[in-house]
């Protein structure tokens, strides 16, 4: 049975910084202000806001008042932004039983891959045409998984003050790179140009196996992690679109089948709870930059 009697005896009073626990019987409501300082039985230092932006829950936690220029925008390649995340890798391997046997669908058979490769041939022809110049540029930029495509949905590409968010993204990319290689090695699916020799990939096909696409897996992993940290931010849905475009560009480049993209997405979704355990501290630090 719901007991509301506590509400009659005690009350929380809100001020600019604090939440004060007040005994209500002693609090004449008509003169609450004057009574308050005497009557507060406890006034814990209860900052209800962690920092300056009070409007955070209204999807406005974007980047106001953060106009410091970042001077190291070039320094965001996966290998350039952070130190080797050895602690996170150790934590990841401590939880190996939780991620080494996720139920990723088996890769398609070779005849099915040949069918999917026909679509890649179509994309190859279209990519050479003028309307796809932008996509060609994107493919070249994204070959190295630089961060601009992940930062742009949040509008923080040129803003300072998001170091923890950037470090988190780089760490997610580093850890998922390794996890993806583990799954690739299990099935050793040939790259599209090995199945369909008429494909002339726009980029050199990497030396490791095709399924799942690590570009898809890594990009979607970043999106799922951000979806846990700041779900209400409009950029968090947009980031999935950005990830999807990055993944699809690898199909246009002729280095991945559509099934690789789908598997990368699926793996990223399933592995999020593990990443959340491994990276809790880093995720909290990133979240603090937005709240």
């Amino acid at each position: 049975m719901t007991d509301l009697s506590i509400l009659r005896s005690f009350s929380f009073m809100v001020s600019a910084d604090d939440l004060d626990l007040v005994e209500r019987e002693q609090m004449p409501l008509a003169s609450a202000m004057s009574a308050m300082s005497a009557m507060s039985v406890m006034s814990a230092r209860t900052a209800l806001n962690r920092n300056r932006n009070r409007n955070r829950n209204r999807n406005r936690n974007r980047n106001r008042n953060r106009n410091r220029n970042r001077n190291d925008t070039a320094n965001t390649a996966v290998t350039g932004g952070i130190l080797e995340p050895w602690e996170e890798r150790a934590a990841l391997y401590a939880l190996r039983d939780e991620w080494m046997n996720l139920p990723l669908a088996l890769p398609p058979s070779l005849p099915e891959l040949r069918t999917q490769a026909v679509e890649l041939l179509r994309k190859q022809v279209l990519l050479a045409q003028a309307p796809h110049a932008i996509r060609r540029e994107e493919i070249l930029i994204e070959a190295e998984l630089e961060l601009s495509r992940y930062l742009r949905p949040y509008g923080i590409e040129t803003h300072g003050g998001y170091d923890a968010t950037i470090a988190l993204m780089l760490t997610v990319l580093a850890l998922t790179d390794e996890i993806g290689l583990y799954y690739k090695a299990r099935w050793n699916v040939p790259r599209p140009n090995q199945v369909e020799p008429r494909l002339r990939p726009f980029l050199p096909a990497p030396a490791h196996a095709s399924y799942p696409s690590n570009h898809a897996f890594q990009s979607f992993a970043v999106a799922f992690v951000m979806s846990r940290i700041i779900p209400e931010h409009p950029g968090s849905s947009e980031l999935f679109q950005s990830a999807r475009r990055i993944a699809e560009n690898r199909e246009w480049a002729g280095v991945h089948y559509a099934c690789d993209t789908a598997a990368g997405h699926s793996l990223a979704r399933m592995i999020l709870p593990v990443l959340e355990k491994v990276l809790e501290r880093q995720m909290l630090a990133a979240q603090a930059e937005w709240l």
């Binding site: 929380f12 910084d17 604090d18 939440l19 626990l21 814990a44 230092r45 209860t46 900052a47 209800l48 806001n49 962690r50 009070r54 955070r56 829950n57 603090a288 709240l291």
Partner: peptide, 25 residues
Amino acid sequence: YAASPYTGPEPADGVREYGSFFCRF
């Protein structure tokens, strides 16, 4: 949304005080 009014981090387990149970929304 509301972690701690203190400069140091919250303890790894639990909370410093009841304020961490509530936030502005």
